[in-house]
Amino acid sequence: GSPLAQQIKNIHSFIHQAKAAGRMDEVRTLQENLHQLMHEYFQQ
């Protein structure tokens, strides 16, 4: 897949890990990143 698709997959797993660790501030930051990446992805 594209590097962007790979990045989106990575962030999904980072979010999963951050949630499991209870780091909600990190989850929020990652979700904002994910949102931006998704936006770029669909602009392609």
Rank of each mutant, 00 (worst) to 15 (best):
R23H: 08
H39V: 11
Q44C: 15
L30S: 01
P3M: 14
Q43M: 09
G22P: 00
K9Y: 03
H12G: 04
H35S: 08
R28F: 05
P3Y: 12
P3V: 12
E32I: 07
I8T: 00
I11A: 04
G22S: 03
L4G: 03
Q6L: 05
I8P: 00
Q44T: 12
L37C: 04
M38F: 08
M24W: 15
V27S: 02
H39R: 12
Y41E: 03
H16C: 15
Y41T: 02
L37Y: 02
G1F: 02
A21M: 07
L34C: 07
I8H: 00
Q17G: 04
Q44N: 11
S13C: 15
Q36F: 07
L30G: 02
A21F: 01
M24F: 12
R28Q: 08
Y41W: 13
S2T: 12
L37H: 01
Q43A: 11
H35K: 13
A18E: 03
K9T: 06
D25R: 05
H12Q: 13
D25H: 08
Q31W: 10
E32V: 06
H12L: 15
I8Y: 01
A21N: 07
H16V: 13
G22C: 08
K9F: 03
S2G: 12
H39C: 15
G1V: 12
N10Y: 05
Q44D: 11
R23S: 04
T29S: 11
K19G: 03
H12A: 07
I15G: 00
G1I: 13
A5C: 10
R28L: 10
F14M: 15
K19E: 09
S13T: 09
Q43D: 10
A18N: 02
N10V: 12
V27N: 01
H35W: 10
G1K: 13
F14G: 13
Q43T: 09
L37S: 01
Q7L: 14
F42W: 12
F14S: 15
I11Y: 04
N33C: 10
F42K: 06
V27L: 07
T29N: 09
Q17T: 07
A18K: 02
A20D: 06
K9E: 06
I15F: 01
A18Q: 03
N10P: 01
R28I: 09
D25T: 06
Q6R: 05
R23Y: 05
